[in-house]
Amino acid sequence: MAFVKICNLEDLWEGEMESFEVDGQEILVVWPADGEIAAFQAICPHQDIPLVEGKFDGKSIICRAHQWSFDCITGAGINPADSRLAKYPIKVEGDAVMVDTEGVQVLFAHT
């Protein structure tokens, strides 16, 4: 695995999400309140809408366009349940937040 630094912890807020570009890919980073930081594809698998423009309620990532929602821990679809976000390996070393994009493919769903 080739982890790349995407930001520092001070660039994120617990309970919020932020988007970062890594190796030409947009990565959505979420930090659930009292939870661990996770990284997912930054576009909705429905119609390529940037998820950072949506909402994050601390448990679900919700697309602004059609309200598709995803679990912030696993990336599994909540609405609709047969959708999913690609999840990237992520780790924190000191103050550095690092992600590995190798081998992860952005997922697309039915329309």
Rank of each mutant, 00 (worst) to 15 (best):
M1P: 08
M1I: 08
A2P: 15
F3P: 15
F3N: 00
F3G: 01
V4G: 00
K5S: 15
C7G: 12
L9M: 10
L9Q: 12
E10Y: 05
E10T: 15
E10G: 07
D11C: 10
D11T: 02
D11H: 05
L12V: 06
W13P: 03
W13C: 09
E14F: 06
E16P: 02
E16S: 12
S19P: 08
S19F: 09
G24R: 11
G24Q: 11
E26D: 15
L28V: 07
V29Y: 06
V29D: 05
V29F: 09
V30M: 01
W31C: 01
W31T: 00
D34Y: 02
E36C: 00
I37D: 01
A38K: 10
A38I: 00
F40V: 02
A42Q: 06
C44A: 10
P45M: 09
P45D: 09
Q47A: 13
Q47H: 07
D48H: 05
D48R: 12
P50M: 04
P50H: 03
E53M: 07
E53Y: 05
G54T: 08
G54R: 04
K55V: 14
K55M: 15
D57L: 00
G58C: 04
G58L: 03
K59I: 01
I61N: 06
I61D: 05
I61C: 07
I62P: 13
I62L: 13
C63T: 05
R64Y: 12
Q67A: 13
S69W: 05
S69V: 08
T74N: 03
T74W: 00
A76D: 14
I78D: 12
P80F: 12
P80L: 14
D82H: 15
D82V: 11
A86C: 13
A86V: 11
K87R: 14
P89W: 03
K91C: 08
K91P: 11
G94M: 00
A96I: 06
V97Y: 01
V97K: 00
E102W: 02
G103H: 07
Q105M: 04
L107T: 13
F108I: 10
A109W: 14
T111S: 14
